[in-house]
C-alpha cells in the first residue's frame, strides 16, 4: 500500500474533487451526486454549471451502472468502475471508466464519433429522434444519455479504449463542463 498522504497529494495536485472506485449501486450514485451538488453550490458557481455537472455525472454513472448490470461481469477487475470529478480553473472534468466487452467497442466508438462530429443543433435533433424511437425490450435507458452529455459539455467528448485482457477493453470517457460555450 502506498502511503495515503501520497494519494492525497496526488489528488490535490490533479484537482480531483471526488473519486469513487468500486461497484456502482443506485444508492452510491445518489449519495455522491448529492455531495457533489452541495459542494458546488457552496462554491457559489453559476447555477447552470452546477446543474450541468450534476446532470453529466448522473448520465455517466447511470450509463456505467446499466451497462455493467446488463453484462454481469464476474471478475471484480471488470465489474468495478471508477468516476472522478476534477476541478481545474473555472471548469470541471468528469471522468468515468469501466470495462467493456470487446465486441461492444465498435458500436460505442461509432456513436461517440458521430456525436463528436455533430454541432449543438444536430445534437438536439439526434436527441429528439432518439427520444421518439420505441424502446427495445428490457431497456433500462432510452439510449440518449451520451447525447444529453454532449449537449451539456464544453467542446468534444474525450474517450479512449485500452486493452484490458483478451476479451475486454477499458473505456474512459472525459467530459468538460463550464469554462466556455456549451
Amino acid at each position: 500500500m502506498r502511503n495515503i498522504i501520497e494519494i492525497k497529494e496526488f489528488f490535490a495536485e490533479e484537482g480531483i474533487l471526488i473519486s469513487f472506485h468500486g461497484s456502482f449501486s443506485h444508492g452510491i450514485i445518489e449519495e455522491i451526486g448529492s455531495a457533489v451538488r452541495r459542494h458546488l453550490e457552496h462554491e457559489r458557481l453559476e447555477r447552470g454549471i452546477v446543474a450541468d455537472v450534476f446532470a453529466v455525472y448522473i448520465e455517466q454513472t447511470q450509463n456505467v451502472r446499466n451497462y455493467l448490470k446488463r453484462k454481469n461481469f464476474l471478475d471484480p477487475a471488470q465489474s468495478s468502475a471508477i468516476v472522478l470529478i476534477v476541478q481545474t480553473e473555472g471548469e470541471y472534468l468528469l471522468c468515468s471508466g469501466n470495462s467493456i466487452a470487446r465486441e461492444d467497442v465498435p458500436d460505442l466508438a461509432a456513436r461517440l464519433e458521430k456525436i463528436n462530429n455533430s454541432d449543438k443543433d444536430a445534437l438536439k435533433k439526434m436527441y429528439k429522434e432518439q427520444l421518439r424511437k420505441p424502446l427495445e425490450a428490457d431497456a433500462t435507458g432510452a439510449g440518449v444519455g451520451l447525447i444529453d452529455i454532449a449537449r451539456r459539455a464544453t467542446g468534444k467528448l474525450g474517450y479512449r479504449f485500452d486493452r484490458q485482457d483478451e476479451s475486454h477493453d477499458f473505456f474512459s470517457l472525459f467530459v468538460k463542463v463550464g469554462g466556455g460555450e456549451r
Binding site: 446543474a51 448520465e59 447511470q62 427520444l131 433500462t140 435507458g141 444519455g145 447525447i147
Partner: peptide, 12 residues
C-alpha cells in the same frame, strides 16, 4: 427541475 434522459423519455 431536473430529469435524467430516461425520465425525459417517460415524460414525453
Amino acid at each position: 427541475s431536473y430529469m435524467n434522459s430516461s425520465s425525459t423519455k417517460c415524460m414525453l
